[in-house]
Simulated scan of single mutants.
Amino acid sequence: MHDDSVTVSAPGAPDIELADLVERIDARRFRLIGRRNDMVKIAGRRASLSALNTILTNLPGVEDGAFVPPNTDDGHTMRMQVLAVAPGVSAADILAGLRKQIDPVFLPRTITFVEAMPRNSVGKLTAGALREFATTVMEGQIIGEIAFPANHPALPGHFPGLPVVPGALLLDCGLDLAGLSPAKIDQVKFLRPVRPEETLCFRLRRESGRLTLSARVANTANAPLVLRAIMRTQSD
């Protein structure tokens, strides 16, 4: 046992690392923490996603729902998020119910209500389907992808020997993909340098009279967020 992982060894056979996490109690005993792919760790504390989801769906009025783990590549989103099917229930009610039963570090940053969860034909909610659904709900629909070639005229001076796509160029291309001419941009965050040839996936979300434009590196596991802009349209 090493770093909470368990490896089984036998003479004449290769070592096998199990998918369980354990905590050593003493030389002869251990406590099972849970399955490796079911655990989420925040601020040094662990919790089982299935246990959190059970607490959520057992709250009064919650018909279905799930916790969405934070994307560890997004420095500003190191808190859980919740998607819930709960007609007539407020986010404050759900948060109050969760606060009574779970460690505060796992309380969600946002609670978003949806009509249905993306379960498959046998009722299973896969991690991949949940992540894609959560991204669409929270960041909007995909409006396009773009990559900046290494010979783009904006790159040679930005910066010599270590080219980075200028933030103004990222924002301009995103607005062009969205077909937007905003009267005001309330907030823009550039969260990660973008290198030449990296393909970015842009999304647009419309909510409460505001638009949120975001971009992530495409075709990458736990794709990092590189741009987020909140704005209003000319008609607002």
Rank of each mutant, 00 (worst) to 15 (best):
Ile16Asn: 06
Ala223Arg: 01
Pro166Leu: 04
Leu170Thr: 04
Asp172Val: 01
Leu49Ala: 09
Met138Lys: 12
Pro11Thr: 08
Pro14Trp: 02
Ala66His: 09
Leu107Gln: 11
Gly44Phe: 01
Val6Arg: 05
Ala183Leu: 06
Pro153Tyr: 12
Gly157Thr: 09
Phe67Pro: 00
Gly123Trp: 15
Ile142Met: 07
Asp4Glu: 09
Gly157Asp: 10
Arg119Gly: 06
Met39Phe: 06
Gly140Leu: 05
Ile230Asp: 06
Ala183His: 12
Val226Ala: 08
Gly140Ala: 09
Val217His: 04
Phe148Ser: 02
Gly88Pro: 12
Arg216Ile: 12
Thr57Phe: 01
Thr199Trp: 13
Ala218Asp: 08
Gly179His: 08
Lys41Arg: 12
Pro11Trp: 11
Leu227Ala: 03
Leu32Gln: 10
Pro69Asp: 05
Val89Asp: 08
Ile185Asn: 10
Arg119Lys: 14
Ala10Val: 01
Ile55Asn: 01
Asp20Ile: 09
Pro224Asp: 04
Gly12Pro: 07
His2Ser: 13
Ala10Arg: 03
Pro104Thr: 11
Asn151Glu: 11
Ala183Arg: 10
Phe67Arg: 09
Arg31Thr: 14
Ala91Gly: 15
Glu207Asn: 11
Leu98Trp: 07
Leu213Gly: 03
Ile16Pro: 14
Pro153Ser: 06
Ala127Cys: 09
Arg109Cys: 05
Asp74Ala: 12
Glu198Gln: 13
Ala116Gly: 13
Leu227Pro: 13
Ala134Met: 11
Asn222Tyr: 15
Val105Phe: 02
Ala13Gly: 03
Met138Ile: 06
Phe106Tyr: 12
Val165Phe: 00
Gly75Ser: 07
Pro196Ile: 08
Cys201Asp: 02
Gln187Ala: 04
Leu107Val: 11
Arg210Gly: 01
Pro156Met: 00
Ala147Glu: 06
Met231Cys: 14
Leu130Asp: 02
Gly97Ser: 07
Phe148Cys: 05
Gly179Met: 00
Thr77Phe: 13
Lys184Ser: 14
Pro108Ala: 06
Gln187Trp: 06
Ala116Glu: 08
Leu56Ser: 04
Ala96Glu: 06
Pro224Lys: 05
Val6Thr: 04
Pro166Met: 05
Arg192Phe: 07
Arg203Gln: 02
Ile42Leu: 14
Asn53Lys: 11
Ala84Trp: 11
Phe133Lys: 11
Thr135Ile: 00
Ser50Tyr: 15
His76Ile: 12
Glu145Thr: 10
Gly88Asp: 07
Ala127Arg: 15
Met80His: 06
Val68Glu: 00
Ala91Asp: 09
Val114Thr: 14
Met78Gln: 15
Thr77Tyr: 09
Ile143His: 01
Arg31Val: 07
Asp73Thr: 15
Ser9Leu: 12
Leu213Met: 07
Asp74Met: 04
Glu198Tyr: 01
Ala84Pro: 13
Val164Phe: 09
Arg46Glu: 10
Thr7Phe: 10
Leu21Phe: 03
Val8His: 01
His158Thr: 05
Phe133His: 15
Gln187Cys: 10
Ala215Cys: 03
Val194Arg: 07
Ser214Ile: 01
Asp3Cys: 01
Val105Asp: 11
Arg195Thr: 04
Pro193His: 05
Val85Thr: 14
Asn53Ile: 13
Pro149Met: 10
